[in-house]
Design a protein around this nucleic acid. Structure first.
Lengths: 140, 140
DNA sequence: CCGTATCCAGAGGGATACTG
DNA sequence: CAGTATCCCTCTGGATACGG
């Protein structure tokens, strides 16, 4: 029933359901989305209005912010509150469920901040080596 | 110099550089990629050959697996080893740097597995409410 | 102010065929 | 086996304009 034909019964801590249509894969794609990640991170700090989010997230278009917020609302991670005033005011905040993502997302961001120099170095080295091999096609 | 015009000096644990062109955003997009995540997770278990990875990851095309592996190699997260044999054998494994992602990715997957039911429920409720409002456009 | 609707360019990514 | 190269189509996502 699982996807692996060769699971020899080892209780692998990293074994998961990787079928393309499975829930976990779907949700992972949503959470690990470029814009979703940023929205959740910002809302984790405090409740924010639409225009505030738009200003905070450099490079996001109005359309993508709307789409992202709708998805997160649908998934029960974000709560949307419309204040019936006459310049309309709409506020977004994390639901309790959304709040439980805090630790996980922090971990991701922290890792990235901590290792960005190593990654930049690795890239330079890789690119340098690639360039060298292109320059000497018949070498070796 | 930072992006916020209104940072009142609070040492916000969730304050980061969100400029579109910054390193962190770039790297985050790479790590939080659909296929990258799965590749890293699988390699965290053990060294794998190209064809093994392809078989394990349901739905990935040869092209995307190649592209993903090259990116990860370039970022210094994955090591590629070519064995000069005559059916060629190429093995992929995490570098030490790649290995440090273990905890973070585990956290993400665990969260998803743990809350998938809540998310599914939230989606159903959202869809049901949306359908109801479409059915009664003039209601109130 | 907070969206939705429409249009459209370009990247993402699958299928296929060919090399070392 | 492990790719690279090509074609082509879909879907993402930006720009713009309009509505509540």
């Amino acid at each position: 029933m699982t996807h692996t034909a060769a699971d020899g019964g080892d209780a692998d801590p990293f074994q998961w359901d990787v079928r393309e249509d499975c829930e976990v894969r779907q949700i992972l794609d949503r959470i690990a989305d470029k814009w979703s990640l940023l929205v959740i991170a910002l809302l984790d700090r405090r409740k924010l209005r639409f225009s505030e989010l738009r200003r905070e997230i450099d490079g996001i278009s109005q359309r993508m912010l709307t789409v992202t917020l709708r998805q997160l609302e649908r998934d029960g991670l974000v709560k949307r509150t419309v204040h019936p005033e006459v310049p309309p005011r709409v506020e977004y905040e994390l639901t309790p469920l959304g709040g439980t993502l805090h630790t996980t997302i922090r971990s991701l961001v922290t890792w990235t901040e901590r290792h960005q120099n190593e990654i930049a170095a690795a890239r330079e080295e890789y690119d340098a080596r690639a360039a060298a091999e292109t320059a000497l096609p018949a070498a070796r």
